[in-house]
Simulated scan of single mutants.
Amino acid sequence: MNPPSSSASAPAVSIIVVSADSGPSLRDGVREVLAGTLPLELILIDNASTDGMPQAIARAHAGDARLRVIENGANLGFGPAVNRAAAQACGETLLVLNPDCLLQETALQRLLDILEAHPRAGLVGSVVCDADGQPDPASFRRDPLLRRALTSLFGGAGEGVAIDGAMPDRVVEAEAVSGAVMLLPRGVFQQLGGFDEGYFLHCEDLDLCRRVRDAGYQVLLAGDVRVPHGKGSSSRHRPVFVSRYKHRGMWRWFRKFDPAARNPLLAAVVWLGIWGHFLLLVPGQWWRARQRVRGGNA
C-alpha cells in the first residue's frame, strides 16, 4: 500500500513500534501514546511474538482507528520491521519508538516542534532514562570509531565514544542518539532507504544517524525531552541471542564507516576482539538467564 503524499486528514506523525515478546511494557507504551489527542497513527509491527501481547492490545483498542497491528510471520529484525511499517505509514513524519518507552503527549509535541523549527534537521532524538530517572549515556554519543573506543577502554587522552559531562538540557547537535526514540521526516527516511537491513538488532541506530549526517542533515538531541525507557524483555530473556546480534552489528558498522577497516591486519584484530568479547560474555549471560528461569518457576 502506498501512503498518500498529502491529505488534510493525514496524521501529524506515524509512530512505529516493533515488538518481539516485549511483555507488559508494550501494553503500557501503547496506552500512553493513545491517551493523547494529537492526530497520529500508531503502527505496531510484531516480529512473531509468542506472548500474545500484540493480539491482546489489538483487542483492547479495537475501536481506535489510530492503531494498526501488523503481524510478521517471522522475526525479521528491528530495522527490516521498521522499514515495512514505514512503507505503510500515512504521516509525513515518522517516530520510531521502542516498545518499553513511555512517551507522553507533551514530549511528542516538543519533538515535533523542534523538527519544525530546524529546517536542516534529519533526525531528532530524546534523552531516554531508566526507572530512576537516570539518563542513558547512549542518548548522546559519538560515532564508535576504533580510536575512540580504545581511548574509552584504556582511559587515554583524547576523545572517547561517550561524551563527558552532564546530559544537555537543551537542543544540541549530536553525532548519534538513542534508537529508542527517533523522529524523522518521512522524506529523509525514504531518501536514505530506511534502516540498513544488514543489521538484525543493535547498531542500526548508529548507522542511520551516520547516514543522516553524511547526507547533509543534522542529528539533534532534544536534551529537554526525557522519556522513561525500560530494559527490553528480549534482552532479559534471550541475552545470548541479543548479544550475538549486537556484536555482529558492531562489526558491520566498523566495516562500513571506520577508516581503520581499510587496514586488513587491523580489521582482523578488531574482528577477533569483537567476537572474543562475545564469547567471554556468553557463560555469564547463559547462567543469569538460567537463574531467572529457575526463579520464575519457583
Results as ranks from 00 to 15, higher is better:
D136Y: 13
S178Y: 04
A85W: 06
V181S: 04
D132P: 01
P137V: 00
R141H: 07
L184I: 06
R120K: 14
L112F: 10
A85V: 09
R186D: 06
V171M: 12
L112C: 12
L112M: 15
Q109F: 02
T151P: 02
L192A: 05
V96F: 05
E92R: 13
V212Y: 05
D130I: 00
S178P: 03
F154P: 11
R147S: 15
V161K: 00
E173R: 15
N98W: 02
M182Q: 14
A87N: 06
L153D: 11
R148H: 04
A157Y: 05
V128C: 11
R148D: 03
M167T: 15
M167V: 11
E116Q: 15
V177L: 13
R186K: 10
G158V: 04
P137K: 01
I163E: 00
D113R: 14
A180I: 04
A157T: 08
V177N: 05
A87G: 10
F154W: 14
A157D: 15
D207S: 00
R211Y: 07
S152M: 05
Q134F: 05
S139P: 10
A87Y: 06
G156I: 04
L95C: 09
P144L: 07
L115K: 10
M182F: 06
I114F: 07
A157Q: 14
V212F: 04
H202T: 08
G125D: 05
S139L: 07
L153F: 13
A176T: 07
G193M: 12
C90L: 10
R170M: 09
M182K: 09
L108A: 05
L145I: 03
L150F: 13
V171T: 15
Q190K: 08
A180H: 12
D143W: 05
G125M: 04
L108D: 02
V161P: 00
G179V: 07
G216A: 08
R170D: 15
E197T: 15
G156V: 07
T151E: 11
L145G: 04
V181T: 04
D205L: 03
G179T: 03
D136S: 14
L94R: 06
R142Q: 14
P168D: 12
G194W: 11
F200V: 14
E105S: 06
E159G: 02
E159I: 08
V96S: 06
Q88F: 05
E92A: 15
E204I: 09
A138M: 10
I163A: 00
Q109P: 01
R120N: 14
R186S: 08
G193V: 11
G194A: 09
G122R: 02
V96N: 04
G160W: 06
G125T: 04
L201C: 14
S126A: 15
C129Y: 01
D132W: 00
L103M: 14
G158L: 11
A85I: 07
A180M: 10
V212L: 04
G179M: 06
V124S: 08
N98E: 12
Q104H: 10
R186C: 01
A174I: 05
Q88T: 10
F200D: 07
